[in-house]
Simulated scan of single mutants.
Amino acid sequence: MASPERERDAAAPRREVLTWLTDMDGVLVHEEVPIPGAQEFIEALQRSGLGFMVLTNNSIYTPRDLRARLLGSGIDVPESAIWTSALATAQFLHDQRPGGSAYVVGETGLTTAMHDAGYVMTDRDPDYVVLGETRTYSFEAITRAIRLIDGGARFIATNPDPSGPSQDGKLPATGAVASLITTATGRAPYYVGKPNSLMMRSALNRIDAHSETTVMVGDRMDTDIIAGLEAGLRTVLVTSGSTPPEQVGTFPYRPTVVHESVADLVDLVEQWAHADPEPPRGPAGQ
């Protein structure tokens, strides 16, 4: 089996890269500790004038909150360049049923996004039950969600992550609570966040970018990389987070390139923006 480094060298992009999408946790930060090279990577993107978005499945915080948290870690990302699963979920529901209603189990990041999308929050015959991440799941709220779904509300969840990190250890996250509700109701949710490529496409639409000239940077093969692949993006796996190098080859799909961290990508931002175009396909390019 070829090493990630050999695959990386053999798979350098031949199409220009005009837009970058990057995951946050495991790529730019661990919790609130910056990963070396993260700020330099963001600065390289800003100097280049290329479009970019920082993506996260975390639905707890608003983009303003996340900007402040990143800034506290020494990483300066504009609020407008942060795209969360809460924003993607609110956008999806607005597109599906404008001006609808929802019973929301989640925190400020999700409720703010839903309000901004024109949704009414209610526990009386809502169009949807929307489940997001929270550090204060209550038995009462989960019970209410179950009864509303039994009554006909459609079930939406921001992301399928079963657990999340904390300073004290693992915490149950949206996917775990969604499984509880599914077991009680027999109804599975529609997940909007990664690995659903819908989140990638909504981020691209947000900045008017095209999949053919976009790269997705992530640290998880089973969320970031598969979502990028299914959205038609080139993908960069950094092994500074969840997927270690020795596990890359065990997946039935692979990223375009593999690097140790975003520090390796700083010089590539400008280089890939001026990559040689791919040769023509078909007989003329064979």
Results as ranks from 00 to 15, higher is better:
Arg124Ala: 14
Pro98Tyr: 09
Arg67Asn: 13
Ala113His: 06
Val77Phe: 08
Thr112Phe: 09
Tyr103Gln: 01
Phe139Ile: 12
Leu87Gly: 07
Pro78Met: 11
His30Met: 02
Gly99Asp: 11
Thr19Ser: 00
Arg97Gln: 05
Gly132Met: 06
Ser73Val: 08
Gly74Val: 11
Glu31Leu: 14
Leu110His: 07
Ile42His: 11
His94Lys: 15
Ile149Trp: 03
Pro34Glu: 07
Gln39Asp: 06
Asp116Trp: 08
Tyr61Cys: 11
Ser48Gln: 09
Leu87Met: 14
Val29Ser: 10
Asp127Thr: 13
Ser48Cys: 10
Leu21Ser: 11
Thr108Asn: 06
Pro63Asp: 12
Gly132His: 06
Arg47Cys: 10
Arg69Trp: 05
His30Ser: 04
Gly51Trp: 00
Arg47His: 13
Ile75Val: 11
Asp116Lys: 14
Thr136Pro: 02
Ala102Pro: 01
Gly132Leu: 03
Thr22Met: 03
Arg69Ile: 08
Thr111Leu: 08
Asp150Pro: 08
Leu70Ser: 03
Arg147Lys: 11
Gly100Thr: 04
Gly100Met: 01
Tyr137Ala: 10
Pro126Gly: 07
Ala38Asp: 04
Ala90Cys: 04
Arg144Asn: 14
Leu70Gly: 04
Leu28Gln: 04
Phe52Tyr: 15
Val29Leu: 13
Arg47Ser: 15
Ala113Phe: 07
Pro13His: 00
Thr122Ser: 12
Ala68Cys: 12
Met114Phe: 02
Thr136Arg: 14
Tyr137Ser: 07
Arg47Asn: 12
His115Asn: 08
Gly99His: 05
Asp25Gly: 00
Ala102Thr: 06
Pro126Thr: 02
Ala117Pro: 05
Gly49Val: 09
Gln91Arg: 13
Ala44Trp: 01
Ala81Trp: 02
Tyr137Gln: 09
Asp127Gln: 12
Gly26His: 02
Asp25Ile: 01
Thr89Asn: 09
Ala81Asp: 07
Pro63Leu: 14
Gly132Thr: 05
Pro126Trp: 03
Arg14Glu: 11
Gly49Leu: 07
Ser73Ile: 08
Ser85Phe: 00
Glu16Asn: 08
Gly132Ile: 00
Phe41Ile: 11
Thr89Arg: 03
Gln91Leu: 10
Pro63Trp: 10
Ser101Gln: 07
Tyr61Ser: 07
His115Ala: 05
Gln46Glu: 15
Ala117Ile: 06
Asp76Asn: 13
Val29Thr: 15
Gly51Tyr: 01
Trp83Leu: 08
Asp127Lys: 14
Leu70Tyr: 03
Thr19Ile: 00
Leu45Thr: 02
Asp123Tyr: 14
Phe92Thr: 09
Gly49Cys: 04
Val54Thr: 02
Gly118Phe: 15
Gly109Leu: 05
Tyr137Thr: 09
Ile149Gly: 05
Ala141Phe: 05
Arg64Asp: 12
Leu18Phe: 10
Glu31Phe: 15
Trp20Phe: 15
Leu110Cys: 04
Asp127Cys: 13
Gly37His: 04
